[in-house]
Design a binder for these strands. Structure first.
Length: 603
RNA sequence: GCCCCUGUAGUUCAACGGAUAGAAUGGAAGUUUCCUAAACUUUAGAUAGCAGUUCGAUUCUGCUCGGGGGUACCA
């Protein structure tokens, strides 16, 4: 790694020239900005004070030293020169080094990936839907993030287990159940011809409608609003169902199983279309009683305390938080209690010390508390619980509101994207020789590429605006733009084989050639890829990969635009450019794979 | 009330405390006898406000203003 070599050499320079000892991490080597000559830049300002030299003088001294130092080390010119502008020392890497670099990785599909380390797995929980309604745009962000982060962690050498915790019990599903009992008239997904999750969602909406109506009538009848909201008949019936469920009433359980079954079938279809999967699925109906032992244990250890009314609490005021309820006065547990239980369960199931939760930022407080309580209880591994908190997805008009029907349904959105992809592709008229099967596959690939890229390019922690108009755009900073670049590269490689008999696997490169500015730009970006993968893994951020691969594609397009590849007369140069193209194509492909996006051979 | 997150071109997104704040889109103007024009090139346009720390601040600190979220028997 040449940036690392430079760093070490700079450290040596400071030490031997000026007796200044600097830690490696305090030496900043960054890619040189486009407007300046060079490949890597050292900022010397931080050492100016200690060196008692002007930035320019210091930079020149360091430059001279590094030039000699790195030349001597392997008897080859690694650094071909340097220049100093103000306090910035720009190193130029020798062309030979770059060409050898291209040669080494031109066909390597795992470039930038770290080998699998034999470690305990990281458990990534994501998706975690309720079973009373179909998946929507918010779930899409969650699913894409979770899946992608898992892949990025794998690329960083971690063993990963993806898990889903389905919230299949509770008042929400009982609301759908009661509405179906009252108004369903035996309707099934087959009879209605709609997906099971959508059907159950329909009854959830129906419940809400009747509930509102009842409350309204009660209020007009002279009952105050608060009482009405608590005692509306249909709500009481739903609550009755929940009690029956908890008492394991046969009919209730069977209805519950039937409707959940519909939902799971619907979810599986949506998951399949989104291309996400899980190694293990947990159901809350199996885990919601967990955590009670932990509460007992906490009382014994004096981490928790009981109030006079019998409720159990954890005092977190010393941690800057409030007091947190863990068990109600009636002995039932709350969400937090279950989560304590499932965390321990998961730790045991996978012998894992690292738990990653992909959950929206409205639960920041919750996960804060979860981690602290587990630590107080003495679980050392709780330190490695990480809440990957992502921002909300909003529409241009503001928040999505199910009551106002502004929720963007996942299945509808995917469908719409596919239609757009088809329409746009037909307008371009480039795939006339495709079979209809191949064409369908391409539409799907482009549709999901557009959607996934649109969502994943945004920093997870930030709220994002989903404008349907922008999301179906296939030009500019989009998934299809990158897919297009890949297709063009594949086209070049096919032609290189056919017209010039260039086999990318066996071709050798002449390292005495020169590289033009566009080529250099591309090479530098390729060089940065492993660092990007690493950083994305450390920060759990697919956005870094997305922004990187866009830069790479853009920079390749600029190169492609004004540099002939196959029409170049010098054969050695043709080979070099073909190799570079192959390298870029592979890196685009593997970057996109980390985002869950497939790339086409033609489009 | 208290706590947390957040504020960058008209819009959607970038920028480990480093050089002249980058893209895309929309606006204006171009590029095709040539490897895929879903591309490329040129152009105008932004750090909410006020202080502070620093050689250097979009980035760190404080305050003001705006947006979002949470807030002890909901999940």
């Amino acid at each position: 790694m040449i940036d690392l070599l430079i760093k070490l050499s700079v450290k040596k320079a400071l030490s031997s020239l000026l007796s200044i000892e600097i830690e490696e991490k305090d030496i900043l080597i960054s890619p040189t900005k486009k407007e300046f000559i060079g490949d890597f830049t050292l900022v010397v300002f931080p050492f100016v004070k200690q060196a008692k030299l002007s930035p320019e003088v210091l930079a020149n001294k360091i430059g001279e030293f590094v030039l000699e130092d790195l030349k001597a080390e392997n008897n080859e010119k690694v650094i071909s020169g340097f220049n100093v502008i103000k306090g910035f020392l720009n190193f130029e890497v020798s062309t030979k080094y770059w060409i050898d670099f291209i040669d080494k990785f031109k066909t390597k599909y795992t470039y930038g990936y770290k080998p699998i380390r034999d470690e305990k797995p990281v458990v990534v929980e994501y998706s975690s839907p309720n079973t009373n309604k179909p998946l929507h745009l918010g779930h899409i962000r969650n699913n894409l993030l979770g899946w992608s982060v898992a892949e990025i962690l794998k690329a960083n050498g971690f063993a990963v287990r993806k898990v889903n915790l389905i919230n299949d019990r509770g008042i929400h599903i009982c609301k759908s159940m009661i509405a179906w009992q009252l108004f369903g008239d035996g309707e099934t997904p087959e009879l209605a011809g709609i997906k099971g999750d959508h059907l159950v969602g329909k009854y959830y909406v129906l419940f809400d409608k009747h509930y509102k109506k009842e409350v309204e009538e009660m209020v007009t009848g002279g009952i105050d609003k608060e009482t009405a909201e608590k005692t509306a008949p249909i709500l009481l019936k739903a609550q009755e169902l929940l009690r029956k469920w908890e008492a394991k009433d046969k009919d209730t359980i069977s209805l519950w199983e039937k409707m959940n079954g519909w939902v799971y079938k619907g979810f599986d279809e949506t998951y399949y279309r989104m291309g996400v999967d899980f190694d293990k699925v947990y159901y809350e109906s199996n885990t919601y009683l967990l955590g009670k032992d932990i509460v007992k244990d906490g009382l014994v250890k004096d981490v928790l305390y009981k109030r006079e009314d019998g409720s159990v609490w954890c005092n977190l005021t010393n941690d800057g938080l409030d007091e947190k309820l863990l068990q109600r006065a009636d002995g039932t547990s709350v969400y937090m209690t279950q989560d304590l239980g499932t965390a321990v369960l998961r730790h045991n199931d996978f012998e894992s010390d690292k738990l990653l939760y992909v959950v929206g930022n409205e639960q920041n407080y919750h996960f804060n508390v979860l981690k602290i309580i587990l630590q107080k209880l003495g679980y050392a591994w709780a330190e490695n619980i990480f809440h990957l908190s992502y921002g909300m997805v909003e529409l241009p008009e503001g928040k999505m509101k199910s009551r106002e029907g502004t929720v963007v349904d996942a299945d509808d959105l995917i469908e719409e994207m596919i239609n757009t992809a088809q329409q746009q592709t037909m307008e371009h008229g480039k795939i006339d020789n495709f079979s209809s099967e191949e064409a369908e596959k391409l539409y799907y690939m482009l549709a999901m590429g557009a959607l996934k890229y649109f969502i994943l390019k945004v920093d997870p922690s930030k709220n994002m605006t989903f404008n349907p108009k922008d999301s179906i755009d296939f030009n500019g900073n989009t998934g299809p733009f990158i897919q297009y670049t890949h297709a063009r590269i594949r086209s070049i490689l096919r032609k290189a084989q056919e017209e010039k008999d260039i086999n990318i696997d066996t071709l050798s490169l002449d390292s005495s050639l020169e590289l033009n500015q566009k080529e250099l730009e591309v090479v530098r970006l390729l060089y940065a890829f492993p660092n990007v993968v690493e950083l994305a893994g450390q920060t759990f951020s697919p956005a870094l990969i997305a922004n990187y691969v866009y830069d790479l594609a853009k920079s390749f397009n600029a190169f492609y635009q004004d540099t002939s590849i196959l029409r170049e007369e010098n054969d050695s140069i043709v080979r070099l450019r073909v190799a570079l193209s192959s390298f870029v194509g592979n890196t685009i492909k593997s970057s996109m794979e980390l985002l869950g996006i497939k790339v086409p051979e033609r489009m």
